[in-house]
Write a protein that binds this DNA or RNA. Sequence first.
DNA 1: TCCCATT
Length: 353
Amino acid sequence: MWTFLSLYNGPSTISNNCSSPVESGSMEDSKTNLIVNYLPQNMTQEELKSLFGSIGEIESCKLVRDKITGQSLGYGFVNYVDPKDAEKAINTLNGLRLQTKTIKVSYARPSSASIRDANLYVSGLPKTMTQKELEQLFSQYGRIITSRILVDQVTGVSRGVGFIRFDRRIEAEEAIKGLNGQKPPGATEPITVKFANNPSQKTSQALLSQLYQSPNRRYPGPLAQQAQRFRLDNLLNMAYGVKSRFSPMAIDGVTSLAGINIPGHAGTGWCIFVYNLAPDADESILWQMFGPFGAVTNVKVIRDFNTNKCKGFGFVTMTNYDEAAMAIASLNGYRLGDRVLQVSFKTNKTHKA
DNA sequence: TCCCATT
């Protein structure tokens, strides 16, 4: 499972003879800057900072999130002040198990346009082909950063599809030219090699399918119908990258009609109270629900200290009032699984179950 | 026919 550990030996092995003029990024921080992969979906930037801050002083820390939905993309960067701490972090935190994930900690390559979009999707592989054999096939075209063969969740047998990430995009391009439509040694069928989908486009697909598979089974009052339409439009807009067209004026009308109180502080954003979450609810569902309505800066599921199960509610912080109001108008009464959510601005009063 | 590796 940890074959990729051997694939990357740190920045000293990065080839520096790239002919591309784009390759001019600075290398001086390569001994302090780490990339952390395979983070649990619900891990926050604060938790990342906290975990790596236990090693030594952090210069900067960033969890990479989807620009539109705010959902974690499962990886981040940690830049230490002292290179020794970076090294220590690799030695002590690489391979650490967090929930269902095993995180990978390695030196970040210098950021450069030439290393982007270097991920290939490979299908039609012989079911017997191992990850090592896959690497051997592709290694002639460049330096492999990661490789993976997808397996059936239940049987564990190869699905015949996998991924190869090269160090540089031109290497990936060459691999496509050389291997797409070719039969690997001993194989009876040709393989397909193409660039992998962009991770950010998947979010839109997920939202669209979420949209189609969540028929509205709530009680449709006039306001609810209005809110439902808003949510639909927002999800569609988001999926197609179109900016929301709803004006703050209209939102204010809705909120005042609904009799919502003036919410709590707007200092760090607008805090939204979400009630009736399932015991296994996690942060990602809050990102998914609220992200489409605008800038979300924080989500939190309140859990029981002992069982770690959600206590039925959580909070979402949104930057802009109109977007928060739209989210509330749209999501209050939203049916999540077999539960109908209550969504409102957080008040100072204690909520009772 | 898609595993979350470039801020």
